[in-house]
């Protein structure tokens, strides 16, 4: 579905993603795990194209020079130079780190902004689906996004991304700052989204325990490079992974 070949990303002279390749298989959940500064978010920005926008802004500001090299093969074409808005139109939708919901719009409005690309029938269908997997959002639908709790905001962010009718959904640290119970619930929700809509999901996270049960294939990223890859069980049985990502 999404084939990433030899991605390299430089912020000025610092290397953020170092020759990283991976494949997100259609209809599966691919996990990318790594500690802070491993390059997860940079990778997500590269996949969604946000990095091109950042690069443009930095050039205008005369700031850091961002260099992106490599290939992203999606639907048979290399999309490494495609604008983020065009990628979203083609179905690659990012649910960004720290949620970035619109704090002064209500839950309903947030979801409708997300559904900008969808037609009326799709939007209606997805909206009812979002309310089905996240029933809490339905009760809060007139509340401003900024007044929601962290978990509710994350549900909203995922719901908003779903409204854009993704074929590939990129979740950047969806469990950031959530309680263990909420982590479990969101993990299950991500799994059911994957099963029920059949959307391909790429999820990045630092703490692997709540996500390992749901992923189909995983990569461990360190200093911008993939150091380990395998199915969930394979990774789980690796002693290094156990120590670093499960704290056992």
């Amino acid at each position: 579905m999404l084939e990433v070949k030899n991605i390299m990303l430089f912020y000025e002279n610092a290397i953020a993603v170092n020759n990283f390749s991976f494949t997100a298989k259609a209809g599966k959940i691919t996990g990318i795990f790594g500690s802070n500064s491993a390059g997860k978010s940079s990778l997500m920005w590269t996949l969604s194209g946000i990095i091109l926008d950042m690069r443009k802004k930095e050039i205008m500001r005369g700031g850091e020079r961002i260099t992106v090299l490599g290939e992203i093969i999606y639907e048979g074409a290399n999309i490494i130079d495609m604008k983020p808005s065009d990628r979203a139109r083609k179905g690659i939708v990012l649910c960004p780190e720290r949620r970035r919901i619109f704090p002064e719009s209500s839950v309903m409005e947030n979801l409708r902004i997300g559904g900008y690309l969808a037609n009326a029938a799709q939007a209606r269908k997805t909206l009812s689906y979002v309310f089905e997997i996240f029933p809490k959002l339905k009760d809060l639908r007139h509340r401003n996004g900024g007044f929601l709790s962290g978990g509710e905001q994350q549900m909203l962010a995922i719901g908003r991304a779903l409204m854009a009718q993704p074929k590939v959904l990129l979740l950047d640290e969806p469990l950031l700052g959530l309680s263990p119970a909420m982590e479990q619930r969101l993990g299950q929700a991500i799994k059911s989204i994957n099963k029920e809509i059949g959307v391909t999901i790429v999820v990045s996270e630092q703490y692997a325990r709540p996500l390992f049960p749901i992923i189909d294939y995983g990569y461990i990223i360190e200093n911008g490079a993939a150091v380990l890859e395998g199915t969930a069980e394979e990774l789980m049985n690796n002693p290094d992974v156990k120590e670093a990502y499960f704290g056992i």
Partner: peptide, 24 residues
């Protein structure tokens, strides 16, 4: 083979390309 495989960063060649470097 069981167990995760080592993904080696250097195994496949790095992409061709050049970038402008800025040094003090």
């Amino acid at each position: 083979m069981t167990g995760a495989t080592e993904a080696t960063a250097g195994a496949s060649p790095a992409p061709e390309g050049r970038r402008k470097e800025r040094l003090d």
